[in-house]
Simulated scan of single mutants.
Amino acid sequence: MEPRGLPLVIVPFAVSGVIHLVRPETFEPIVPKPLREWSRELVLASGVAELACAAGLLHPRTRPAAGLASAALLTAVWPANAQMSVDLGRRANRRRDAKSLTAFAVSLARLPLQVPLIKIAWAAGRP
């Protein structure tokens, strides 16, 4: 039986994974500062991981391992999402325009939304 909400993990992973591979420069600025030396490699690796998790969640046989991997991946990238919010907050404070403030607000709202995605992925990992 497919856990409720599984497409909420699969679709963003698939879309984001492709973007990570096609336009890695989009994600490099949000790699936390201590890891910036390896930002390109980390972005590409996370894109591959997202695609592998999305594919693994599709099939019941691979879903348990993919669910646990997805929960771990979502937890691992949380610092990058937090870094993105910090950076967007600084930009919004400097620019004080609607676009910057909106981007900052969206990034803040996204952080707690990752918790239900982790729970869905974790549930998928339990046979």
Rank of each mutant, 00 (worst) to 15 (best):
A76P: 06
V31Y: 01
R94A: 03
V77I: 15
G5Y: 11
E50M: 08
E2L: 10
P29A: 12
W78T: 13
D87N: 12
A105I: 07
V22S: 11
P24Y: 05
G125C: 04
R126K: 10
R23T: 03
G17Q: 06
G47I: 12
P7F: 14
M1N: 05
V106Q: 10
T102S: 10
K119V: 14
L35S: 09
R126S: 15
V9E: 05
L21C: 04
A69L: 08
L6D: 07
A55L: 10
I19G: 00
T26Y: 15
V115D: 09
L108V: 14
P127F: 07
L68A: 13
G56D: 04
G89W: 05
A45V: 01
E28T: 14
V15E: 08
Q83M: 09
L8M: 08
L42G: 03
P24D: 09
K99W: 09
L35P: 01
A49D: 00
T62Q: 08
T75K: 12
L58T: 07
W38S: 14
F27S: 11
R23P: 00
R91Q: 12
L42N: 00
S16N: 03
A121N: 01
T26E: 13
I118W: 02
G67E: 00
K119M: 13
A124G: 00
A98T: 08
V9L: 13
A92P: 03
I30Q: 14
A65N: 15
R23K: 05
L58N: 00
V115E: 00
F27E: 03
L74T: 05
L101G: 10
R91N: 08
D97K: 14
R4K: 14
L117N: 04
V9R: 04
A109G: 14
P112Y: 11
F27W: 08
R4I: 10
M84T: 05
G5F: 04
S16D: 11
A109I: 06
K33A: 15
V86N: 02
R96L: 03
S100W: 03
L68N: 08
G5P: 08
A14G: 02
N81E: 09
R36A: 15
A54T: 06
I118P: 03
A72Q: 00
L108D: 10
Q114E: 08
F13V: 02
A65M: 04
R4S: 11
R63V: 09
I30E: 06
P112L: 13
L73K: 08
P3S: 07
P29E: 02
A55E: 00
P127H: 09
A71D: 00
P127T: 02
H59C: 01
L6E: 14
A55N: 00
S100H: 00
L51K: 01
R96W: 05
H20R: 03
T62S: 08
A103M: 14
F104A: 08
R40G: 15
E37I: 15
I19A: 07
R94I: 10
R61T: 04
R110D: 07
R126T: 02
Q114M: 13
S39E: 10
W122F: 11
A54V: 11
G89I: 15
N93G: 01
V86G: 04
P112V: 13
E25T: 12
A52P: 01
W122T: 08
A71Y: 02
D87M: 09
G89F: 05
I120L: 09
